[in-house]
């Protein structure tokens, strides 16, 4: 028994078909095939996107096409020092910030770290959670509930080029017609804060610090930019944010950061199963009365490990061998199955 029998049944199937019956069908089929070819050619001609008139196979996208489609993990090249906590940068108080009371002006700084500096994606990776914790130096807060300080934690993945496409109805069929290429969009963006960021600081501060989905840098490719109105571009930008949110790759937790003591705070950030591999940058911002007091940066590496890393680098670094291996595996599986079932006398 086995695929041999399966194949036998194919033979039976076809010999049972009386030649005259199929002969009649085949003439119809022959005509149908010709019509099909014409239809498909027409369909492609229809569906050719207007905003991408020239697919320019020799443009940068060609080199991008040659290279793997995904951000390269390159675990070894990740310098060790990068996973060490970054340096403290105290931002001078903004000139426009509301007047601050008390003696604490500009004195507080923030330090933070991440529970897991290195997240490994293995064969049973189904998402994980990292904890970002930190403390406010020189905290003037009496209790955790006082709420003098606001903390915003942003975890951002690598910035990669991305194409957004919009479908429209052409001759009754929904096809991609318009597209916008964004040069750099973070592959992952999570934001957690002590309260909604709009309440923490005003629009201008958030924009300069690039905090929040709407302030994520998302520059359209210069070639597509000129062809679209600003309003349309906005729709595409919103769509990218919406789709990334749906995929669980853009995450917002407005009350995600909690103070545990007068200085200590923590938050947990979800890394979903589909999180793109690559280094993550964690930024912690300390606000008081709407102005940024300090920020801090830490890094998390996210890399494939074990079988997962092996298969992925095998597929992308040695594609030819990988292909041969896939064929070998398939041939072995097929032969093993037929040998096994033949020995057992089949399932008759």
């Amino acid at each position: 028994m086995g695929l041999r029998e399966l194949n036998e049944s194919v033979r039976v199937w076809w010999t049972e078909v009386r030649a005259s019956e199929v002969g009649r069908i085949f003439t119809v089929r022959n005509i149908a095939l010709a019509v099909a070819a014409v239809l498909i050619v027409l369909a492609i001609a229809f569906s050719w996107p207007k905003s991408e008139k020239a697919p320019q196979p020799k443009s940068p996208s060609e080199s991008a096409a040659k290279a793997p489609a995904k951000p390269q993990p390159a675990p070894e090249t990740q310098p060790k020092a990068k996973s060490e906590p970054g340096t403290i940068t105290t931002t001078p108080p903004l000139a426009t910030a509301p007047a601050r009371r008390g003696t604490s002006v500009g004195r507080e700084t923030v330090e933070a770290d991440v529970s897991t500096r290195s997240v490994s994606i293995t064969s049973n990776f189904s998402g994980t959670e990292i904890v970002v914790f930190g403390a406010v130096d020189d905290s003037h807060q009496e209790t955790a509930e006082a709420g003098i300080y606001d903390v915003v934690v942003v975890v951002e993945g690598t910035q990669v080029p991305l194409v957004a496409r919009r479908k429209s109805n052409v001759a009754g069929i929904w096809i991609n017609t318009e597209s916008v290429k964004f040069e750099r969009v973070p592959s992952y963006y999570a934001i957690a804060s002590t309260r909604p960021i709009e309440e923490i600081a005003d629009e201008r501060v958030l924009r300069t610090q690039q905090i929040g989905f709407t302030h994520v840098p998302m520059m359209p490719d210069p070639t597509t930019k000129s062809q679209l109105k600003e309003k349309e571009l906005e729709q595409f930008r919103d769509a990218v944010i919406r789709l990334k949110k749906d995929d669980g790759l853009f995450i917002k937790k407005p009350y995600g950061v909690a103070f545990i003591g007068k200085a200590l705070f923590r938050t947990s950030i979800d890394l979903p199963a589909n999180v793109p591999v690559g280094p993550l940058t964690t930024k912690v911002y300390l606000f008081r009365d709407g102005s940024l007091l300090a920020d801090y940066e830490a890094h998390v590496t996210l890399q494939r490990e074990g079988m997962e890393a092996f298969l992925h680098s095998f597929a992308f670094d040695r594609p030819f061998l990988y292909g041969l291996f896939a064929v070998f595996l398939a041939v072995t599986a097929g032969l093993a199955a037929s040998a096994f079932f033949r020995r057992r006398g089949g399932a008759h």
């Binding site: 996208s61 991008a64 096409a65 489609a69 995904k70 990669v160 080029p161 991305l162 194409v163 957004a164 496409r165 919009r166 479908k167 429209s168 109805n169 009754g172 069929i173 929904w174 991609n176 290429k181 595409f236 769509a239 990218v240 919406r242 789709l243 990334k244 749906d246 995929d247």
Partner: peptide, 21 residues
């Protein structure tokens, strides 16, 4: 069916070479 029925989401995003969502 998927070709003719209006999709709930008209937009889609993908990497540069493809890998559609």
């Amino acid at each position: 069916w998927d070709l003719v029925v209006m999709p709930t989401e008209l937009f889609s995003i993908s990497g540069i070479t493809g890998g559609s969502h």
